[in-house]
Amino acid sequence: MTAARRHVRSIDEVGRERIIKLLALTGHMHEINQRPVPKVPALRGRVVCNLFLEDSTRTRLSFDTAAKRLGADTVAFTGSGSSLSKGESLRDTVETLAAMRLDAIVVRHRSAGAPWQIAQWCEAAIVNAGDGRHAHPTQALLDAYTIGRRTGRGADLSGLRVAIVGDIVNSRVARSTTAIASMLGAEVTHVGPSTLLDPRLDVQRCTDLDQIIGDVDVLYMLRMQNERMDAAPVPPGGEYTRRFGLTPERAANIRTDALLMHPGPINHGTEMTVDPSTMPQSAITDQVSYGVAVRMAVLFDLLGTGEMEEES
């Protein structure tokens, strides 16, 4: 094999041209998912491994469903990263799995870069299902698809004002969704207290949500961890919610044609005190519903040959 092996590990690595192709493919997969029997044999005989070393049942099931709808066989390896530290290296684990002749490994790991390390130790195509605080490209793809579909813009998000609110510095979703939105032409602003922003990322920053909430086309709320920690980035006792939470008062200021998004699961009472299901702007259920289609598109792009075959 001389052709460079392909992966989906970060938005920048995939690049604009392939991102646009993946978004189009997602639309096609979404149509398949609307059928009474949402199944095509496009990846029959292929083996996809879900290697989830950080807990995430939702994302794992989404990938598992995606692979099965395309006819692939799936194997799962789950566990916490620390279970490997008892003498077994990540490389040992990957080499054991690689003996099963896997075509793709979908990896989630709590440490940034694990998908790059794994790619060096096996021949499979690697899909990053979230690595530490670094990247979550399939989340970014489904976010971009949701925005494009709800606004009717498709893959052209030029001029859209996107505000991402919350714990930017610790968020792989923020990094990847910022990357894809910027790549497709949107103007992204990160919103939060300075302790949660990263001054070295190349985007606009704002520390006052109320200043911009009435102007944005997309309001993207991040999940805010509210556990106590040393050197916590925000004071305890609800001040974060008062400054940056989506309260009923703030919700009233969102434009009627704007979109409200969240990667889930929502930490009710922290980043939101409103029920988004009551808001016409909410695109949160769309995000969830496109998750499988996006992952089908990614797996087909990596492992499929030629055009989609239809079920006979």
Binding site: G81, L84, S85, G87, E88, S89, L90, R91, D92, H109, R110, S111, A112, G113, A114, Q117, W121, G132
Partner: peptide, 11 residues
């Protein structure tokens, strides 16, 4: 040793 370096960066 090799198997200590062939770990995720945080470990």
């Amino acid at each position: 040793p090799r198997h200590h370096k062939e770990r995720p960066l945080e470990e």
